[in-house]
Design a protein around this nucleic acid. Structure first.
Length: 793
DNA sequence: TTTTACTTCGTTTTT
DNA sequence: CGAAGTAAAA
């Protein structure tokens, strides 16, 4: 190793870099520099081993991780790194299937169905099969089918395995029909992308061998989150050269619900007996205090590979814990802390992240961020590409691109309103089924459908429209095509007619889609509509986060995996919320252990400062619920925590308090800290008020309250409302004092979209001016000055 | 066919 | 509290 780029690595990292041949299992604890090891390893392969970048494949879970990995390799290697295939499992499979899926009887221009599409397809099928969705919900079908696919179980096998069970038998039938429908629509769902690729490789050994020869060196990041299907995919690809490096941490496995199989990591050595195992245990990210807290929590899990993270960093600040009466106060505290710390020059806004268990918690936090004038981004919520207005436009594009996608065609047939209702649609569907053609082709044939009468006159213009777009798509760019669609269908007017509240925002999203399309075209010269649609289907919310933006990040603990921040807040540390109610009442302690790993992931995101917060009461689904402090907080030894007031510490698993009477570890897992949850007869547990839940209701109402019965819902009370909408990556308020406006009531102003108008009202709001303008053309609009960007004329 | 008023029900987490 | 589904009216 002559070059100096490897000198900064520690011994284990170096060893990992030098182990280029054969199977390698890199057990990399949180913050142990695994990406560093991975990037240097790839650089080493290219620079020192003379491996052609073309022969290297690296799997990641998100596009963002893929981009980062490529960038960092780029910095090390200089050139050639664009030849490395770095991408997510899903994107990789799309690329492979685009070339070869015709071998499985699909058209290579297949479309990709998201969860929404799956749900409507299942709903259709249930209707046809006469299945009552109250007995078996669509979600149940989706989960069952998804989990079958994660395990590479096809419909036939599924039905064979589940002949006895009534509801599983039904699921098997639906699964079969669902697959048939997907094929008919020339569509694949997320799980199919992996499963079909495995199928392809098994059906066509020559195709597999082609890729085996291409990908002679394979590495997999976040290996603990791979499912059975992904495992098989990797096994096949690496089958010939066996140069396979997987990097993972069993303590950070948090996607079991998505099919991740921890056995993939625990049993790796069994599948590859000649595996070299290297552990990275030195943590470079967190202070000793943070690390101690993380270890204190995770050590309560069993069934983990032994490891001991250590750091050379100093002790650092103590980890804080604060409990508040309400979630409002919790949010207040976090926002105020960030505002004052950032104001005092303690780091940038971008140094802060607020993590929570459920997306719903974002609202409150977001509201307080706005009030404090803190610039923030919310990751997650409703994915940008899953929003109605975006899906409408994408459905147009899909119909233009792939006439076989019935779901897309049906979605837009009456958007905007064309007077085509369910009965007409049903007739067209019947006709399509009879002739075994697609829904769209049936529409083209509308003249021949019996007793359609005047409805034909409504269908024809639609067909003509799509045909026109099709020919335009031959030479027009995607962004231009979208603009043309919007104009021709009068989408803006449609939005305004259906949703007067959010029309403006929705249209802004559509405009955002145009710029994303333009950006994509710029980055991918000569790209096709098909490619764009696939790309868009595989975007995760986290992919849209700009690391350089100096903004506080609000996101779920799941989204935070792989990231790090100097200062982290974990909000909602409450039993029933985190760990979730579901995991507490589950029979299986595995669910609770997964929650604990999630806590571990959250804690280890922090570099210097970590604050845990909880609320005694919070609104969930319009009801106020009371929760005790999270058991995960109680698992942290007192001396490691900075609490203003001592955490009520009823559980003494570690302190040996004789007060306690848990019979066993299982008993603790089940019941949690004293008085928390009781197991009811059914699946639902019940929550009782306990001493560590502060009660601030009038005594009278408390006195009249009877103890919760078994199976009853958690005790609730009415509270106040919430607000705001969250989504994709939501840009928070720009960091600015109340926008100074240079106009007043009665002034003439101009708006970029609405043109000239007269200011009729101007009032001061929390931290902005609310302006009412009577536009000459667009009529009256009420808007915030900072967003409206009005110019005085 | 479309609009509306009313009921029901749910959430963990996401590629 | 909202989304989404259903029933009834326009």
């Amino acid at each position: 190793m002559s070059s100096s780029i490897y000198d900064t690595l520690n011994r284990e990292q170096k060893e990992a870099v030098l182990t280029t041949e054969g199977p390698l299992l890199l057990l990399a604890g949180a913050g142990s520099g695994k990406t560093r090891a991975l990037t240097h390893r790839i650089a080493y392969l290219i620079r020192e081993m003379g491996v052609n970048p073309w022969n290297i494949l690296a799997f990641t879970f998100t596009n963002k991780a893929a981009e980062e990995l490529r960038e960092r390799v780029d910095q090390l290697v200089g050139f050639g790194s664009e030849q490395i295939w770095v991408s997510t499992f899903h994107s990789t499979c799309v690329r492979i299937l685009r070339r070869h899926i015709d071998r499985l009887g699909f058209d290579n221009r297949f479309t990709i169905y998201d969860a929404d599409d799956q749900k409507s397809l299942i709903k259709d099928i249930c209707k046809r099969f006469g299945i009552d969705n109250k007995q078996i919900r669509e979600r149940d079908f989706m989960n069952a089918i998804s989990s079958a696919k994660d395990r590479l179980v096809d419909p036939l096998e599924y039905r064979m395995q589940n002949m006895g069970d009534f509801s599983k038998k039904k699921i098997g039938e639906v699964y079969q029909e669902y697959q048939d429908q997907l094929k008919k629509n020339n569509a694949l769902d997320f799980d199919d992308l992996i499963m079909k690729t495995v199928e392809l490789f098994k059906a066509c050994p020559e195709v597999l061998e082609n890729y085996q020869d291409r990908f002679q060196y394979i590495s997999v990041d976040e290996y603990q989150d791979t499912n059975r299907a992904q495992f098989e995919l990797i096994r096949l690809l690496a089958g010939k050269y066996r140069n396979l490096c997987v990097v993972g941490d069993d303590d950070q496995s948090i996607y079991k619900f998505r099919g991740a199989d921890i056995r993939n990591i625990l049993d790796f050595e069994k599948v590859y007996p000649d595996t070299k195992v290297i552990k990275l245990e030195q943590n470079y990210r967190s202070t000793a205090n943070v690390l101690d807290v993380a270890n204190a929590v995770i050590r309560n899990n069993r069934g983990r590979k032994a490891k001991a993270l250590w750091t050379k960093k100093g002790a650092g600040d103590r980890v804080c814990f604060r409990q508040f009466d309400t979630a409002y106060e919790e949010a207040d505290y976090i926002a105020a802390q960030i505002a004052s710390a950032a104001g005092k020059g303690k780091g940038k806004y971008g140094d802060y992240a607020v993590l929570y268990r459920t997306n719903a918690q974002a609202r409150l936090l977001e509201e307080r961020m706005v009030q404090e004038g803190i610039p923030y981004d919310v990751v997650g919520g409703v994915n940008f590409y899953a929003r109605k207005e975006i899906k409408d436009i994408l459905a147009y594009l899909k119909t233009i691109d792939n006439g076989r996608d019935d779901l897309a065609a049906k979605r837009i047939i009456n958007i905007p309103r064309r007077g085509i209702g369910p009965s007409t649609i049903a007739r067209v569907e019947d006709y399509a089924e009879m002739r075994d053609i697609s829904f769209y082709d049936a529409l083209r044939d509308a003249d021949n459908i019996m007793d359609m009468g005047r409805t034909v006159s409504r269908i024809d213009p639609f067909v003509t429209l799509i045909q026109t777009f099709r020919s335009k798509a031959q030479y027009m760019g995607i962004a231009d095509l979208i603009r043309d669609i919007l104009e021709k269908i009068g989408y803006k007017e449609y939005l305004e007619s259906t949703d007067d509240e959010g029309a403006e925002d929705r249209y802004a999203n559509v405009e955002e889609l145009i710029s994303k399309a333009a950006g994509y075209e710029e980055a991918h010269d000569g790209c096709t509509l098909t490619e764009f649609l696939a790309e868009v289907a595989l975007v995760a919310d986290i992919d849209n986060v700009e690391g350089s933006a100096d903004r506080v990040l609000l996101m779920t603990l799941h989204s935070a995996k792989g990231l790090e921040f100097p200062c982290v807040y974990m909000a909602g540390m409450e039993d029933g919320l985190f760990p979730s109610y579901m995991s507490i009442s589950a029979d299986d302690t595995a669910e609770l252990e997964e929650e604990r790993r999630l806590a571990y992931v959250g804690i280890t995101r922090a570099m210097d400062r970590l604050t845990l917060t909880a609320a005694k009461s919070r609104m969930i689904r319009g009801e106020t619920q009371y929760h005790p402090v999270s058991r995960f907080v109680k698992e942290i030894p007192e001396e490691l925590l900075d609490c203003e007031k001592a955490v009520p510490r009823r559980w003494s698993f570690q302190t040996g308090d004789p007060d306690e009477d848990y019979d066993s570890r299982e008993d603790y897992d089940r019941r949690g800290s004293r008085g928390g949850y009781e197991k009811g007869s059914g699946k639902l547990g019940s929550l009782r008020l306990t001493e560590d839940v502060f009660d601030f209701r009038p005594k009278a109402s408390l006195a009249g309250r009877k103890p919760a019965a078994k199976g009853e819902k958690p005790f609730i009370a009415q509270g106040m409302g919430s607000l705001n909408q969250l989504a994709g990556v939501t840009k928070g308020m720009p960091y600015q004092a109340p926008a100074a406006v240079d106009y007043k009531e009665g002034d003439r102003v101009s708006h970029i979209k609405y043109g000239p108008g007269t200011v009729t009202r101007l009032e001061k709001d929390v931290r902005d001016y609310k302006v009412t303008v009577e536009f000459d053309k667009a009529g009256q609009k009420i808007m915030y000055a900072s967003f409206a960007k009005l110019k005085k004329i």
